[in-house]
Amino acid sequence: MMDKVGSWLDERTGVSQVWQAIFKRKIPLGVNFLYTFGAVAMFLFTLQALTGIFLAMNYSPSPEHAYDSVLYITNEVAFGSIVRGLHHWGSSAMVVVVVLHMAVVFYLGTYRYPREVTWLTGVVLLLLVLGFSFTGYLLPWDEKAYWATAVGTNMAGTVPFVGGFLLALLRGGTEIGAVSLARFYAFHTFLLPALAISLMGVHLFLVVKHGVSVPPWIWRRATTGQKKTGRR
């Protein structure tokens, strides 16, 4: 029965090829845990998206209600503090893991030909991850959120020539207030996710297209004809 449904679908969509390309692709010899950080970043992104969606079901992006709604999530919603905690710690873990992933790519030199575009999309993804952190930090609308955003937006204000414009653009005015909160919320929950998901699609497409890079220790062995080193 399942087989029949499966082959019916496959004949019309070719899903099995997609499945094959993603999960049955060849991986070079000698790949180790250093190559898992990208996948960890993706797992964390998914977790952030899920916990974020469920936080949004009890959150109100208005100056009158934001703080109270966050207190409500923390103190009254069943498992609310856990969902909020997952999102809170997940955001920090995301930054750590993405930086680790970038460091691995950098030190192993796998950003080189033909993977430069993978790297470039990665650079934008890093900026987007930081954008999530910056915009999300304002949403609880407590003192820390307010002052962190005051400092952060003032930094944008120091940019030569366009600083004042940037500052007003981010804040939606001269002050941090209702418009700023609505903007940060829209960035955090609509704009950045849309950009990040699209770019992750490109990033992953390129990873699949090029295949995972051959680790330098295997590469060295292959080019010098050297026999097994300590690793494999």
Partner: peptide, 15 residues
């Protein structure tokens, strides 16, 4: 493990 709190927070008002 992760779905329990996430779904639980959503379902709780109904209970």
């Amino acid at each position: 493990f992760l779905a329990t709190p996430i779904v639980g927070s959503f379902v709780s008002p109904a209970l």
